[in-house]
Design a protein around this nucleic acid. Structure first.
Length: 588
RNA sequence: GGGCGUGUAGCACAGCUGGAUAAUGCACCGGCCUCCUAAGCCGGAGAUCGCGGGUUCGAAUCCUGCCGCGCCCGCCA
């Protein structure tokens, strides 16, 4: 469907030729000839200002001269010189023919890449709140977008199954009972009773109770020692301790995954951090690091790399080995990355902005070892209007609660709009609308931007939201169903009308369909899913204009060309929605 | 203090490898259901692009200084 790319291939030589005749440098055309910023001005546009000096002519005159001399081509409808710009407008008939013959398959020669995307990897110690879930939603969307682009993707969750957080949980489950936990957390608001049986919500109370004891009780020092011993044992690969950790966290992780599954998020593989300790990779790695030129040793025998020598600013010492010889989280992460590289030819991590420094350290160390550094999509945290999200202070929105609220609100809207629907239908639609709206609300903003969560935005079902896209899609589905019911089959290459017979909404839709691959390509290259969300909004909008201007059916007569365009748009919307995790309902 | 990121209409957000009148949604004002689902469509109003310098034919975009906000600167994870 890369019709705009094809257009440029046709047009560029003609523009270069015209420019050469005037004495300009044709080598500049490739870069300068780009999609027009102003949609009403054309499809491709060449600013003529850079040629003014060498040609000794005004840009306006250059553009006019080129417009007059450029050779015609079937793909080009018209060429105008405006204010020093050469504006080229695609012939919509040519475009329609091209789009319909290419179909969803964009016909570009691409070798699919093997991509490993690690995302979420949240500590399994409690339920997702909206802030932690941003990682999973962005990561899963990236996975889906890569699949749409034709890449082979493995989505991976790195399970932090050792270290302090799990140790605290395991300790709590071992040493506290229900009554003790209740007492320790007595001053807290009770959570939503809906989740009282969900293990992530249950067990996080044990974790929180233990956190209190660690800070506030008289035995704090003893507890700290006990937990320290557990951590130490896990870092040395003690199997019984690791097994007790797993018993502690696995139900929590299952509960967390249940929440994500509701959002359509699943993983192909879970890799446990402890694996790299028990299989010897970490020991081997530390040995190699110790032999590096930039290795340093502290007084107590701890070892670090001097990454300042490799351009790292700020704190330059990167410790990878403690004085007692055990590894650190980042060390294991490096071992994990080497393993990941053996499984793919492209590696992407989704990380919170708090991991930027560590990602630098891991990346530089990998390069020092002769490996490539992974690509990273960083995202900023989600705040609440009241400030930073914090479970401890109760300033938190749980994903489970948000999804429930979203479903209820959506159900209210459906019941209001479609009173004839039965309860089952309402629930199906409400669940789809609710989860899709929540996802879209997070995908829609650029990852590096701080984000303030507001209920009214998350639950907005109007223009600029997932339900808007979903609704446009159901219109296309409705058309398909009606045509199908008439017993009419789509034609592979229907007669394409001339430009004069094409309403504005149709032309706009064709041009929007034509730029999908350019958008997707950029999204994949730059890890910026929000641009595709933006595109899908535009496409839905364009479809609505087409729907307004072009009636596929007039008194049971099917316009085969309109139907073909409608179907192409429907399938493009559907695949795009799936790539964003929006549920493509056929009716709503 | 140092490093990284961010600042665009009342609110939210796009545009940032320099290019024409800064896009979109919410909220606000007005219009459209004898016609494929009005969760829609059309029109209107609303912006000193944080502030000051610089580079350029041209700056929201690049450079620089300042200001606000966020994150990081553990032999934690």
């Amino acid at each position: 469907m890369n019709a705009m790319h094809a257009l440029k291939q046709h047009v560029q030589p003609l523009v270069e030729e015209a420019l050469s005749e005037l004495g300009g440098d044709p080598a500049l055309v490739e870069r300068l000839l780009q999609p027009a910023r102003e949609a009403d001005q054309g499809d491709l546009s060449l600013p003529c200002f850079p040629f003014a000096k060498t040609l000794g002519k005004a840009p306006v005159a250059i553009a006019e001269a080129m417009a007059a001399t450029i050779k015609p081509h079937p793909s080009v409808l018209e060429i105008h010189a405006v204010n020093g710009y050469l504006n080229i407008r695609v012939d919509p008939s040519w475009l329609a023919t091209k789009l319909l013959s290419d179909g969803l398959d964009n016909g570009m020669e691409r070798t699919p890449r093997t991509v490993l995307i690690e995302h979420t990897s949240a500590n399994p110690n409690g339920p997702f709140h909206v802030g932690r879930a941003r990682n999973a939603i962005l990561g899963d969307t990236l996975v889906r977008l890569h699949r749409l682009w034709g890449n082979e993707v493995t989505a991976e969750y790195y399970v932090d199954d050792m270290g302090k957080q799990v140790a605290v949980l395991a300790w709590a489950l071992e040493h506290l009972d229900e009554a003790a936990v209740d007492e320790l957390l007595a001053d807290r608001e009770g959570g939503n009773p809906l989740w009282s049986g969900k293990p992530d919500h249950q067990r996080v109370r044990w974790y929180q109770a233990a956190q209190r004891l660690r800070k506030e009780s008289e035995e704090a020092a003893n507890i700290e020692t006990a937990i320290g011993e557990l951590v130490h044992a896990s870092e040395h690969g003690d199997e019984s301790v690791l097994a007790s950790f797993e018993n502690a966290y696995q139900p929590v992780l299952d509960g967390m995954l249940e929440t994500l599954a509701r959002l359509g998020i699943t993983y192909d593989r879970f890799t446990k951090e402890s694996v790299f300790v028990t299989n010897g990779d970490v020991a081997q790695l530390m040995e190699e690091l110790g032999a590096l030129e930039i290795n340093g040793v502290a007084e107590n025998g701890a070892q670090f790399l001097d990454l300042g020598a490799r351009g790292l600013k700020g704190k330059t010492e990167f410790f990878y080995r403690r004085g007692d010889g055990s590894s650190l989280y980042a060390t294991r992460d490096i071992a994990y990355h080497r393993w990941k590289w053996s499984k793919c030819n492209e590696l992407i991590n989704v990380l919170g902005e708090d991991h930027k420094l560590q990602a630098q350290q891991v990346g530089l160390t990998l390069e020092e070892l002769g490996e490539r550094r992974p690509e990273v999509m960083f995202y900023s945290f989600i705040k609440l209007p009241e400030g930073k999200m914090s479970t401890r202070r109760g300033n938190v929105v749980f994903m489970d609660d948000l999804l429930e609220e979203a479903r209820e609100q959506a159900a209210a809207v459906v019941t209001d709009l479609r009173p004839e629907y039965d309860e089952g239908t309402v629930n199906t639609i409400a669940e789809a609308v609710g989860t899709s709206a929540v996802r879209f609300n997070i995908i829609n903003v650029s990852p590096e931007k701080g984000f303030t969560f507001r209920w009214e935005d998350a639950l907005s079902f109007e223009s600029g939201s997932a339900p808007f896209i979903m609704y446009s899609h159901t219109r296309a589905c409705s058309i398909q169903k009606r045509v199908h019911d008439l017993g009419v089959q789509a034609l592979p290459s229907p007669p394409v009308p001339t430009v004069d017979a094409m309403p504005e909404g149709l032309v706009h839709l064709l041009r929007t369909l034509a730029v999908r691959d350019d958008c997707l390509e950029k999204v994949i290259r730059e890890h910026r899913p929000h641009l595709f969300a933006e595109y899908l909004l535009q496409l839905s909008n364009a479809f609505n204009a087409f729907y307004r201007d072009c009636h596929v059916m007039e008194s049971n007569e099917v316009n085969m060309f309109y139907f073909a365009v409608s179907e192409l748009a429907r399938l493009t919307m559907k695949s795009g929605m799936e790539a964003l995790g929006i549920v493509p309902l056929t009716t709503m």
